[in-house]
Design a protein around this nucleic acid. Structure first.
Length: 232
DNA sequence: AAGTGAATCAACCGCCAGGTA
DNA sequence: TTACCTGGCGGTTGATTCACT
Protein backbone atom coordinates (compact mmCIF):
# COMPACT_ATOMS: atom_id res chain seq x y z
CA UNK A 1 0.00 0.00 0.00
CA UNK A 2 1.81 3.03 -1.18
CA UNK A 3 -0.38 6.07 -0.85
CA UNK A 4 -3.82 7.45 -0.22
CA UNK A 5 -5.53 9.72 -2.73
CA UNK A 6 -8.80 10.96 -1.32
CA UNK A 7 -9.54 7.54 0.04
CA UNK A 8 -8.16 5.78 -3.02
CA UNK A 9 -5.16 3.64 -2.32
CA UNK A 10 -2.36 3.48 -4.84
CA UNK A 11 -0.54 0.23 -5.11
CA UNK A 12 2.20 -1.47 -6.97
CA UNK A 13 2.93 -5.03 -8.04
CA UNK A 14 -0.61 -6.14 -8.60
CA UNK A 15 -0.82 -9.43 -10.46
CA UNK A 16 2.04 -10.82 -12.43
CA UNK A 17 4.70 -8.39 -13.64
CA UNK A 18 6.97 -9.35 -16.48
CA UNK A 19 9.14 -6.29 -17.03
CA UNK A 20 10.25 -3.06 -15.47
CA UNK A 21 7.95 -0.89 -17.54
CA UNK A 22 4.83 -2.72 -16.52
CA UNK A 23 6.05 -2.65 -12.97
CA UNK A 24 6.42 1.09 -13.14
CA UNK A 25 3.03 1.46 -14.77
CA UNK A 26 1.48 -0.48 -11.94
CA UNK A 27 3.10 1.65 -9.30
CA UNK A 28 0.19 4.09 -9.55
CA UNK A 29 -2.63 1.60 -9.93
CA UNK A 30 -5.69 2.74 -8.08
CA UNK A 31 -7.64 0.71 -5.58
CA UNK A 32 -10.68 1.28 -3.46
CA UNK A 33 -14.00 2.82 -4.43
CA UNK A 34 -14.47 3.84 -8.04
CA UNK A 35 -15.02 7.50 -8.87
CA UNK A 36 -17.82 8.67 -11.15
CA UNK A 37 -15.23 9.66 -13.75
CA UNK A 38 -13.76 6.17 -13.75
CA UNK A 39 -17.24 4.72 -14.11
CA UNK A 40 -18.00 6.91 -17.11
CA UNK A 41 -14.69 6.05 -18.67
CA UNK A 42 -15.33 2.35 -18.30
CA UNK A 43 -18.94 2.53 -19.47
CA UNK A 44 -18.08 4.57 -22.53
CA UNK A 45 -15.15 2.41 -23.45
CA UNK A 46 -17.22 -0.76 -23.25
CA UNK A 47 -20.05 0.91 -25.17
CA UNK A 48 -17.69 1.56 -28.05
CA UNK A 49 -15.35 -1.41 -27.90
CA UNK A 50 -17.21 -4.11 -26.04
CA UNK A 51 -16.13 -6.01 -22.97
CA UNK A 52 -13.49 -8.67 -22.51
CA UNK A 53 -9.69 -8.64 -22.59
CA UNK A 54 -9.84 -6.71 -19.37
CA UNK A 55 -6.17 -5.97 -18.87
CA UNK A 56 -5.76 -4.39 -22.28
CA UNK A 57 -9.14 -2.71 -21.86
CA UNK A 58 -7.94 -1.09 -18.66
CA UNK A 59 -4.80 0.18 -20.38
CA UNK A 60 -6.54 1.32 -23.55
CA UNK A 61 -9.26 3.13 -21.63
CA UNK A 62 -6.62 4.93 -19.59
CA UNK A 63 -7.91 3.51 -16.34
CA UNK A 64 -5.33 3.07 -13.64
CA UNK A 65 -7.03 -0.09 -12.51
CA UNK A 66 -6.27 -3.74 -12.92
CA UNK A 67 -8.22 -5.67 -15.51
CA UNK A 68 -9.74 -7.64 -12.71
CA UNK A 69 -10.96 -4.51 -11.02
CA UNK A 70 -12.54 -3.24 -14.26
CA UNK A 71 -14.23 -6.55 -14.88
CA UNK A 72 -15.61 -6.70 -11.38
CA UNK A 73 -16.84 -3.13 -11.49
CA UNK A 74 -18.60 -3.73 -14.79
CA UNK A 75 -20.16 -7.07 -13.91
CA UNK A 76 -21.23 -6.21 -10.39
CA UNK A 77 -22.26 -2.60 -10.75
CA UNK A 78 -22.17 -0.87 -14.12
CA UNK A 79 -23.78 -3.41 -16.44
CA UNK A 80 -27.09 -2.00 -17.69
CA UNK A 81 -29.03 -5.04 -16.58
CA UNK A 82 -27.75 -5.20 -13.03
CA UNK A 83 -30.72 -5.29 -10.73
CA UNK A 84 -30.54 -3.33 -7.49
CA UNK A 85 -32.66 -3.37 -4.40
CA UNK A 86 -33.78 -5.92 -1.90
CA UNK A 87 -33.75 -9.59 -2.68
CA UNK A 88 -37.37 -10.55 -3.26
CA UNK A 89 -39.14 -13.49 -1.63
CA UNK A 90 -39.00 -15.37 -4.91
CA UNK A 91 -35.31 -14.73 -5.19
CA UNK A 92 -34.73 -15.81 -1.59
CA UNK A 93 -36.56 -19.03 -2.25
CA UNK A 94 -34.60 -19.63 -5.41
CA UNK A 95 -31.30 -18.97 -3.68
CA UNK A 96 -32.14 -21.44 -0.93
CA UNK A 97 -33.17 -24.07 -3.42
CA UNK A 98 -30.25 -23.64 -5.75
CA UNK A 99 -27.76 -23.50 -2.91
CA UNK A 100 -29.13 -26.77 -1.59
CA UNK A 101 -28.42 -28.23 -5.00
CA UNK A 102 -25.10 -26.70 -5.85
CA UNK A 103 -23.59 -25.33 -2.66
CA UNK A 104 -21.45 -22.22 -2.89
CA UNK A 105 -21.54 -22.10 -6.68
CA UNK A 106 -22.47 -18.44 -6.61
CA UNK A 107 -21.97 -17.65 -10.26
CA UNK A 108 -24.01 -20.67 -11.27
CA UNK A 109 -26.78 -19.66 -8.88
CA UNK A 110 -26.61 -16.08 -10.17
CA UNK A 111 -27.29 -17.29 -13.71
CA UNK A 112 -30.78 -18.21 -12.54
CA UNK A 113 -31.48 -14.85 -10.92
CA UNK A 114 -31.71 -12.32 -13.73
CA UNK A 115 -29.83 -9.14 -12.96
CA UNK A 116 -28.36 -10.40 -9.73
CA UNK A 117 -24.62 -10.88 -9.37
CA UNK A 118 -22.77 -13.71 -7.74
CA UNK A 119 -21.33 -11.20 -5.32
CA UNK A 120 -24.77 -10.01 -4.25
CA UNK A 121 -26.02 -13.55 -3.74
CA UNK A 122 -22.91 -14.48 -1.85
CA UNK A 123 -23.35 -11.45 0.39
CA UNK A 124 -27.00 -12.34 0.94
CA UNK A 125 -26.08 -15.85 1.93
CA UNK A 126 -23.34 -14.82 4.29
CA UNK A 127 -25.24 -12.03 5.99
CA UNK A 128 -28.74 -13.48 6.19
CA UNK A 129 -28.62 -17.23 5.92
CA UNK A 130 -25.45 -17.83 7.85
CA UNK A 131 -26.76 -15.52 10.54
CA UNK A 132 -29.74 -17.81 11.00
CA UNK A 133 -27.47 -20.82 11.22
CA UNK A 134 -25.50 -19.04 13.89
CA UNK A 135 -28.68 -18.30 15.83
CA UNK A 136 -29.63 -21.96 15.62
CA UNK A 137 -26.15 -22.79 16.84
CA UNK A 138 -25.55 -25.18 13.99
CA UNK A 139 -23.31 -25.32 11.00
CA UNK A 140 -24.71 -23.97 7.76
CA UNK A 141 -23.79 -27.26 6.09
CA UNK A 142 -25.29 -29.47 8.80
CA UNK A 143 -28.27 -31.70 8.16
CA UNK A 144 -30.17 -29.92 10.90
CA UNK A 145 -29.80 -26.59 9.20
CA UNK A 146 -30.56 -27.95 5.76
CA UNK A 147 -33.70 -29.64 7.08
CA UNK A 148 -34.77 -26.41 8.75
CA UNK A 149 -34.34 -24.64 5.45
CA UNK A 150 -36.14 -27.21 3.38
CA UNK A 151 -39.03 -28.05 5.67
CA UNK A 152 -39.55 -24.76 7.48
CA UNK A 153 -38.23 -21.70 5.71
CA UNK A 154 -38.86 -22.68 2.13
CA UNK A 155 -42.51 -23.70 2.64
CA UNK A 156 -42.99 -20.46 4.59
CA UNK A 157 -41.50 -18.49 1.76
CA UNK A 158 -43.76 -20.22 -0.73
CA UNK A 159 -46.76 -19.36 1.43
CA UNK A 160 -45.70 -15.73 1.62
CA UNK A 161 -45.16 -15.58 -2.12
CA UNK A 162 -48.56 -17.07 -2.80
CA UNK A 163 -50.19 -14.73 -0.28
CA UNK A 164 -48.49 -11.73 -1.88
CA UNK A 165 -49.52 -12.89 -5.33
CA UNK A 166 -53.11 -13.31 -4.21
CA UNK A 167 -53.12 -9.88 -2.59
CA UNK A 168 -51.62 -8.37 -5.71
CA UNK A 169 -54.17 -10.01 -7.94
CA UNK A 170 -56.98 -8.72 -5.76
CA UNK A 171 -55.55 -5.21 -5.75
CA UNK A 172 -55.04 -5.03 -9.48
CA UNK A 173 -56.54 -7.47 -11.89
CA UNK A 174 -55.40 -5.63 -14.99
CA UNK A 175 -51.83 -4.44 -14.67
CA UNK A 176 -50.16 -6.78 -12.27
CA UNK A 177 -47.30 -8.71 -13.80
CA UNK A 178 -44.80 -10.82 -12.03
CA UNK A 179 -41.51 -12.18 -13.17
CA UNK A 180 -42.13 -15.41 -11.33
CA UNK A 181 -45.03 -17.74 -11.88
CA UNK A 182 -46.36 -20.23 -9.46
CA UNK A 183 -47.80 -23.52 -10.68
CA UNK A 184 -48.83 -22.44 -14.13
CA UNK A 185 -46.09 -22.00 -16.67
CA UNK A 186 -43.06 -23.57 -18.20
CA UNK A 187 -39.53 -22.55 -17.27
CA UNK A 188 -37.30 -24.09 -14.67
CA UNK A 189 -39.36 -26.25 -12.37
CA UNK A 190 -38.21 -26.58 -8.79
CA UNK A 191 -39.92 -29.20 -6.70
CA UNK A 192 -40.40 -28.09 -3.11
CA UNK A 193 -42.12 -31.08 -1.62
CA UNK A 194 -45.82 -30.28 -1.79
CA UNK A 195 -45.18 -26.88 -3.28
CA UNK A 196 -43.87 -26.15 -6.69
CA UNK A 197 -42.52 -22.90 -7.98
CA UNK A 198 -41.63 -22.32 -11.57
CA UNK A 199 -38.77 -20.06 -12.24
CA UNK A 200 -37.74 -17.87 -15.15
CA UNK A 201 -34.73 -18.39 -17.34
CA UNK A 202 -31.96 -15.82 -17.11
CA UNK A 203 -32.46 -12.71 -19.18
CA UNK A 204 -30.14 -11.94 -22.00
CA UNK A 205 -27.03 -10.30 -20.73
CA UNK A 206 -25.69 -7.16 -22.27
CA UNK A 207 -28.48 -5.60 -24.26
CA UNK A 208 -28.06 -2.37 -26.14
CA UNK A 209 -25.07 -0.13 -26.34
CA UNK A 210 -25.29 3.10 -24.41
CA UNK A 211 -23.08 6.13 -24.28
CA UNK A 212 -22.89 8.08 -21.08
CA UNK A 213 -21.24 11.36 -20.35
CA UNK A 214 -21.10 13.19 -17.06
CA UNK A 215 -22.72 16.19 -18.70
CA UNK A 216 -25.77 14.69 -20.34
CA UNK A 217 -26.82 11.63 -18.45
CA UNK A 218 -26.66 9.91 -15.13
CA UNK A 219 -24.81 6.65 -14.75
CA UNK A 220 -27.10 3.65 -14.41
CA UNK A 221 -26.66 3.39 -10.68
CA UNK A 222 -25.52 6.72 -9.31
CA UNK A 223 -25.74 5.67 -5.68
CA UNK A 224 -26.19 2.56 -3.69
CA UNK A 225 -28.79 2.01 -1.03
CA UNK A 226 -26.50 3.42 1.59
CA UNK A 227 -25.81 6.54 -0.41
CA UNK A 228 -22.21 5.49 -0.58
CA UNK A 229 -20.77 6.12 -4.01
CA UNK A 230 -18.84 8.23 -6.39
CA UNK A 231 -15.96 9.78 -4.61
CA UNK A 232 -14.55 12.68 -6.56
C1' DA B 1 -26.94 13.53 21.10
C1' DA B 2 -23.32 10.32 21.47
C1' DG B 3 -21.41 5.86 21.60
C1' DT B 4 -21.20 1.23 20.01
C1' DG B 5 -21.99 -3.19 17.99
C1' DA B 6 -24.35 -5.28 14.04
C1' DA B 7 -25.40 -5.37 9.31
C1' DT B 8 -24.47 -4.44 4.64
C1' DC B 9 -22.02 -4.60 0.43
C1' DA B 10 -18.30 -2.96 -2.78
C1' DA B 11 -13.92 -4.27 -3.64
C1' DC B 12 -9.82 -6.99 -3.17
C1' DC B 13 -7.15 -11.42 -2.74
C1' DG B 14 -5.57 -15.87 -3.93
C1' DC B 15 -6.20 -19.76 -6.47
C1' DC B 16 -7.23 -22.31 -10.54
C1' DA B 17 -8.39 -23.55 -15.36
C1' DG B 18 -8.01 -22.68 -20.11
C1' DG B 19 -5.69 -20.68 -23.96
C1' DT B 20 -1.57 -19.85 -26.44
C1' DA B 21 3.11 -19.14 -27.92
C1' DT C 1 5.69 -30.09 -22.79
C1' DT C 2 6.13 -26.00 -20.46
C1' DA C 3 5.74 -21.35 -19.07
C1' DC C 4 3.12 -17.49 -19.06
C1' DC C 5 -1.07 -14.71 -19.32
C1' DT C 6 -5.85 -13.87 -18.67
C1' DG C 7 -10.34 -14.40 -16.94
C1' DG C 8 -13.33 -16.33 -13.63
C1' DC C 9 -14.60 -17.94 -9.14
C1' DG C 10 -15.17 -18.30 -4.11
C1' DG C 11 -13.51 -16.37 0.15
C1' DT C 12 -12.47 -12.39 2.83
C1' DT C 13 -11.89 -7.63 4.23
C1' DG C 14 -12.96 -3.06 5.47
C1' DA C 15 -15.65 1.24 5.04
C1' DT C 16 -20.01 2.88 5.82
C1' DT C 17 -24.62 2.93 7.57
C1' DC C 18 -28.11 1.29 10.65
C1' DA C 19 -30.18 0.32 14.97
C1' DC C 20 -30.14 0.21 19.55
C1' DT C 21 -28.89 1.86 24.22
Amino acid sequence: MAEQDGGIKLVGNVDVQSDDQEENNNMDLRRGPWTVEEDFTLINYIAHHGEGRWNSLARSAGLKRTGKSCRLRWLNYLRPDVRRGNITLEEQLLILELHSRWGNRWSKIAQHLPGRTDNEIKNYWRTRVQKHAKQLKCDVNSKQFKDTMRYLWMPRLVERIQAAAAAGAAASSTTATTTYHINNQSNTNLNMGHNQILLPQPNNIGGGVHTYTPENSAPPHPRNRLGRRFLT
